[in-house]
Amino acid sequence: MPPSATLNPAPRRPYWQPRELILVGAFAALTKVAGVVIALAGGGMNPLSLALKNAVATVLLVVLLLKAPKFGVLTLYVVSQSIFSLLLLGGSLMLLPGLLPAGILCDLLIRGLGGYQKVWAVLVGVGVFDLLSKAIALGFSFLAFREDPRLFIMPAIFIGLGYLGSLLGLAGGLKFVKELRHAGLIRA
């Protein structure tokens, strides 16, 4: 056997396993693809497609947290999405400094509520995260448009619609989780 093929006892495994990291990447990619498809299919910035985009993103986040139930997965998802948006979709990194603590806070919240195996804890965590992320987006819009409050109206409407969609997504997430259980893909 060549030296490279020496068989050693199993070492301690790192905190993040490839399957969790791959799942995070796969769901982040799916969320982005779904968002772009809805925006295109909806014919641009119409209110319904805005809400729907957020609803689908929330459903997917709920499913991800139940499939990769580990502390920090929400934060990792946020970071991956932000960098990916910058690289491929022309998103801005500006929100990341705000989203990062929001992700950590909600990861802590889910753990405090009993962990990622509890569907309602995940729903609360995602609901709070959506609220915080929208608040951060509003705050940024205010900073960017502070010279003219009138310009702040449209982003505020968009973000509000987005949050309505996120709330709808929480209900959709609960329903979809039941379906995934029925399909034998989630045990939570």
Binding site: M1, S4, A5, T6, L7, N8, P9, A10, P11
Partner: peptide, 18 residues
């Protein structure tokens, strides 16, 4: 057993070298 070693006692990375 692979090459005389029980796979459960080895790291996956090491098994995949063989």
């Amino acid at each position: 057993l692979i090459a005389g070693r029980e796979v459960g006692e080895l790291a996956l990375g090491d098994i995949s070298r063989v």
